[in-house]
Structure formats: C-alpha cells, structure tokens
Amino acid sequence: MEANLLTMLQREDSNGVATLRMQRPLQFNALSEALLDALQHEIDAIAADPAIRCVVLAGAGKAFCAGHDLREMRSHPQLDCYRQLFLRCSRLMQSIQALPVPVIARVHGVATAAGCQLVASCDLAIAAETARFAVSGINVGLFCATPAVALSRNISPKRAFDMLVTGRFIDAATAADWGLINETVAEEELDAAVARKVSEIVAKSPAAVRYGKSMFYRQRQLALDEAYDYASEVMARNMMEQDAGEGIDAFLGKRQPVWAF
C-alpha cells in the first residue's frame, strides 16, 4: 500500500484480532478516496489471512466517521466520478459483510451518512453512550441512497425512512433499541466492552464462526425452504470439521475443547 494510504488507516494485529483505526481525526474520519482505498486494501488482506479471527473497526479523534468527504466530492463534479466513488464505497461495505470473520464497529462521537452505513455494515457494533447516529445527507440536498441499503437491513423500514428524509440524529440508546447497534456503554468503558465481545468470539471454534458468518447472510436472501436446504448442507459440512467432533467430545467428556487453528 502506498505511504499516503498508510497514514489514513492504522492496522494493529494482536492474538488473531485485527484493529483498523481510521486516521483522519481533523476531518472526523470522513471517507476520502484514499481512506476508502486503504480500508479496502486491509479488508482484502484480512480476507486472505486465516490467522485473523475478528476485526475491530474504530476511528481516531472525536468521532467514528462523518461519512463521505464532501469537500473532495465537490472538487470533482462529474457524473462518472460520483458513480465510481459510490461503487467503490458500496464494494467496501459488501466486502466487510463478505469477510469470513466477524467485524465489530467501535463507535464514539458521531457516525453520520456513510459513517452510519459503516456501522450498519459491520456484523456487531458497540457504542459509547454519547455516540450519535444519522444519515443526514438530506440536509445538504443529497438523499443517502447507499447508506439506506445497509440501514434498512438493520432497522425497520419506517424508522430508516424517517432518518433518511429528516436527517435527524438518534442517540446511542435509541440506536440500540432499534437494532442498529448491539450495546451502549459509558465512553470510558468502550474499549473494555469491545475487548469482552472479541474475547467471546475468539473463544469459539474458528471454523464454526467462519461457517456461521457466511451462512447467516446468505440464508437471509433465500426463500424459507431454500434457506433450510442451504443451512442443512452448511451444518452437515460443519459437522465434518475437526472442531465439531472435538467440541462435542469435550462436552460429553465435561472438559474444555481445544480448537484447531
């Protein structure tokens, strides 16, 4: 990755956990083209790395992510430029969901527009009680169409549409109640809460988690009978994994399982 991209995103790996921290604090981690490229580069690298078992996505400074970089967008007022920008962003969001390991959004400050889309695209999200969420493009004459895709797959259509056409902010408690995030904690406890969730995930069978994430999203797009057929095949294949045999034997033997890595 080019040096200028490295300054946009910090990656730290520890015990199978990759933490990606967006590094544009003065711009509230707005998604410039360079930051989008940096995120895509790391997500692609993680997808090919069997040693990574969980990802944490965070932002430096006072905010998680303020969405697209509007100043940069206005500097290239051509339709093809905008098409390519939103396609690149959409690819990133889909890559996060397609990643074979869980991605946890660590949210503080604001998550607006494409920043809210990032939260909705992650598998799990834990936020500080002071965090706020909005898809506020409508306030500048731009309907948040691509954020609407992820948002409407997290919360009810009427709540999503309300946010999209009013641009209003919701607080962390409301976001949790609506299903946009999993949990809210005091800001000083945010890192500890994320660490607890990571620990819960990495304590499980890596094979089972990978089977599970892929299956979870695919079955949601299928008809009920197709979903059960697909889930049955996935579960049968999962049963053939060493971890499944070890886990069941450990349960029957009343001992802790030892997972294959």
Rank of each mutant, 00 (worst) to 15 (best):
A45F: 00
Q256P: 01
G212Q: 01
A227S: 15
R88G: 08
G61I: 14
W259R: 06
G67P: 04
L92G: 04
M239E: 10
A244S: 15
R88Q: 11
L57V: 09
V185D: 07
D229E: 15
V234H: 09
I201A: 03
R83K: 14
D225C: 02
A186V: 08
F28E: 15
R91K: 14
A66R: 02
P257K: 08
M1P: 10
S205D: 10
G115S: 09
Y82S: 12
Y228D: 12
L190K: 07
R11K: 12
R210Y: 00
L9G: 00
G109I: 08
L70H: 11
Q84N: 12
R53D: 07
E246A: 12
I201C: 04
Q27L: 15
F143S: 13
E226G: 01
L35G: 00
K254L: 05
E188L: 11
F86D: 05
V56D: 04
A34S: 12
A208K: 14
A114G: 01
M235E: 08
A150R: 09
R71P: 00
A125I: 03
V110Q: 13
R91C: 02
E226V: 01
V135G: 07
V258I: 03
M163A: 10
V209L: 10
E241W: 01
E188A: 15
F169G: 02
Q221K: 11
V119H: 06
N139T: 11
R132Q: 14
E72M: 07
A113V: 05
K158W: 01
E189L: 07
R159A: 13
S136H: 13
V149Q: 04
D229T: 13
A127V: 12
A260P: 04
A175C: 03
Q10T: 08
R71I: 15
A125R: 03
P157Q: 06
L70Y: 05
T184F: 02
L85V: 05
A30I: 12
G137C: 09
K158Y: 02
E42N: 05
A145D: 13
Y211K: 06
M235I: 07
L85P: 00
I170V: 15
S152D: 05
E187K: 10
F161M: 08
L20N: 03
W259D: 04
G16F: 01
Q256L: 11
K197F: 06
A113I: 01
D171P: 07
C81V: 07
F161C: 03
T184L: 06
E2K: 13
D177H: 09
A192F: 04
A120K: 00
I43K: 01
A51C: 04
R255A: 13
A193P: 11
Q219K: 15
C54T: 04
T112V: 10
Y217H: 11
P206A: 04
P77R: 04
A128P: 08
V202Q: 09
A38M: 06
Y217L: 00
S199E: 09
T146Y: 07
T184G: 05
L124W: 12
L5N: 02
Q219M: 11
M22E: 03
S14Q: 11
L180H: 06
L5A: 06
E183Q: 14
K213Q: 07
V140S: 10
L180V: 10
F216S: 00
L79E: 14
N29F: 06
A175T: 08
L20G: 07
C122H: 08
E200W: 10
S90V: 00
